[in-house]
């Protein structure tokens, strides 16, 4: 299941689309497009400098595509309350991100909802100073 939304975001929102990335620019991702997918976790690569949540998504033709959602590394994810154990393989979820410009199945992870308990996960909240 795939849904793509093109939203006219404000300049302020565009700037904050890729907060604090120390390692690389977010220019490979679309700033004004978002993609929302529902699938199951294949693997959570809880790594530096960035983490990747790999999600298997079944298309209308039955073909499964693995999508990768990039987020910051473990210390920022922990500050966002996102632990490696939150996304064990097989966990169903709906996830939203900024897709890549070149069409590869990858995106910058904005937020996710774990469907087993409807818990929300926003990796970017790891930058909130508290």
């Amino acid at each position: 299941m795939k849904k793509t939304t093109v939203a006219a975001l404000s300049a302020a929102l565009m700037i904050s689309a890729f907060p604090g990335a120390a390692h690389h620019s977010g220019s490979m991702f679309e700033e004004v497009k978002t993609v929302t997918l529902t699938g199951v976790v294949k693997e959570f690569q809880y790594t530096n400098p960035h983490s990747w949540l790999l999600v298997d998504v079944k298309g209308e033709d039955g073909k499964v595509t693995t999508w990768g959602f990039e987020a910051e590394g473990p210390s920022t994810l922990l500050r966002a309350g996102i632990r490696k154990s939150d996304f064990a393989a097989g966990t169903p979820l709906t996830i939203t991100g900024h897709p890549m410009r070149d069409g590869r199945p990858a995106a910058y992870w904005m937020n996710a909802v774990r469907l087993t308990d409807n818990k929300k996960f926003d990796p970017r909240s790891g930058f909130v100073v508290r």
């Binding site: 390692h23 690389h24 790594t47 530096n48 400098p49 960035h50 983490s51 990747w52 990039e70």
Partner: peptide, 10 residues
């Protein structure tokens, strides 16, 4: 430790 080369996907 912050591994700059910690994941080939990066």
């Amino acid at each position: 430790h912050w591994a700059c080369k910690g994941n080939p996907n990066n």
